[in-house]
Amino acid sequence: MPRLLDMPTATIRPLPVTAPSVPKHRIPRTPRTPRIPPISRIARIHRLLLLCFEESRPVVLAAFQLRYFAGIALAIASGPALTGRSVIQAVFGSVAWFGAIFYTYLYNGCMDYREDRVNGSARPIASGRLSRRTALTVARCSAAGALLTAACAGPGPLVLCTAMLLLGHAYSSPRTAWKNRTPAVMGVVFVSGLLTYAAGPLTLGVPPQSPALLLTALAMSLWMALVGAVAKDFSDIAGDAAAGRRTWAVALGERRTRVLVTVGACTVGGGFTAGALLWAPEQLPTACVVLAGAIALSVVTLAGRATDSRHERRRPYRYFMVTQHCAHLALLAQAIA
């Protein structure tokens, strides 16, 4: 048997292993987000602000500015002459009051979006053109700006502006929800009117105590509370009932509420005219405008029916708004003349 040691041995050499050639692919880069040009950003911000302005009811904003300047006009008639400093303070006060009312109604739109959708409202939040988050951010910025400018107008306007902001917040806030019952709404509206008529004179350093100012502030604030605060609900009965609100239009019925609005309008118009004859004859033209508007509003309100469209049910509130705009414009025109 041959020896195994004498057998030739084979050397095992490792074969070179080459990796298979894999085609090299480039890793796709994440596409960069296109940069928004500054002009597009400005246009977007401008559009959002316009939507917020629309949501905050421009007609109501104008009404509060007219009340503010009516207070100033009546204060000037019985107070000292204007100075450069008082004019600047009045401008700051006007901006502050605009911001406070802007916050109040924009915040209200954020809280009422469900009812507004049931009522078929075309306002930006209810229609989906403006997000609630954006509107709330703008509203809070407006409140901060109102306080800042009110501080520049003086301590009196700052106190009144703070009170107005708290009042507007409590009106719509879910924790308080004063908007749910008509008597609470009337109280909020009445106080907000008095605050507005007092804010203008205080920016001038004039106490709001002249008979003409007191009579006008009382009459027009009652016009807001007894007429506008009730008439606004005629077009929103469905949404208010769905949200569980106990407004007079829901609790008492539309017909009875229309009678109450008519009585309130005629009472304010007649009372304002009688008060002007007795204590402030210079306010008789303004009072006559309110009396004429009260008569026209009463006719339209009593002629309304339950089958009317939402636009037709809104007619008494439009007459209320037109009347107070005309009354304040007549007052300001008389003051300028």
Rank of each mutant, 00 (worst) to 15 (best):
A238R: 01
S86W: 10
Y107E: 12
V263I: 11
S309H: 13
L260M: 09
A77N: 13
D116L: 13
D6A: 11
A199F: 10
E254I: 06
R3E: 07
P80W: 01
L160D: 15
L15W: 13
A217W: 04
T216H: 08
L195D: 03
L195Y: 10
G270P: 03
T286Y: 11
Q324Y: 01
A287Y: 00
P201C: 10
I39T: 09
H25F: 12
R318V: 11
W248V: 12
A219T: 05
A151T: 06
P281C: 01
R44D: 06
L148G: 07
T196C: 08
S309D: 15
R245C: 03
A335K: 09
G304Q: 02
F98W: 03
M186L: 05
R310W: 01
A144V: 00
M7A: 08
L222C: 04
R32D: 08
Q324T: 02
Y171G: 04
P316S: 12
A143T: 00
A19M: 06
A63M: 08
L147N: 11
G271Q: 13
R85E: 15
Y68N: 09
R175V: 13
A249S: 10
S86G: 15
A212I: 08
V289A: 04
I125A: 12
P8H: 12
P14R: 05
F69K: 04
V289C: 03
S172A: 15
N108A: 11
T162V: 12
G304Y: 06
A70K: 03
P37Q: 10
F53A: 11
F64E: 02
R57D: 13
P211H: 14
L277K: 06
R29Q: 08
T18Q: 14
C266W: 09
P183Q: 04
G271C: 04
E54I: 15
V299F: 13
R181G: 01
A73Y: 07
T176D: 04
L291R: 00
P207N: 11
L148Q: 03
R315V: 14
G99N: 01
S142G: 05
L213D: 06
V300N: 03
A303M: 05
A238L: 05
Y68P: 05
A249V: 06
S298W: 03
A199M: 02
G270R: 02
M220L: 06
V17M: 08
S21Q: 14
M7N: 10
Y317G: 13
Y103K: 00
I72R: 01
G193F: 00
P157F: 13
P208K: 08
T18N: 01
L202W: 07
P174G: 08
A62M: 05
M1G: 14
A231G: 15
V87F: 07
T196W: 14
V206H: 10
C52D: 10
Q209F: 07
A231Y: 05
L5Q: 09
R181Y: 04
K24G: 14
Y105E: 09
C152K: 08
L214Y: 01
L74R: 01
V268Q: 00
Y317W: 14
C52V: 02
A43W: 04
R315Y: 02
A170G: 06
G79A: 11
P8S: 05
I101M: 05
R67T: 12
L215Y: 02
V60W: 10
M7H: 12
R85A: 13
S142E: 02
R255V: 14
D6G: 10
V290S: 02
T216D: 11
T307I: 11
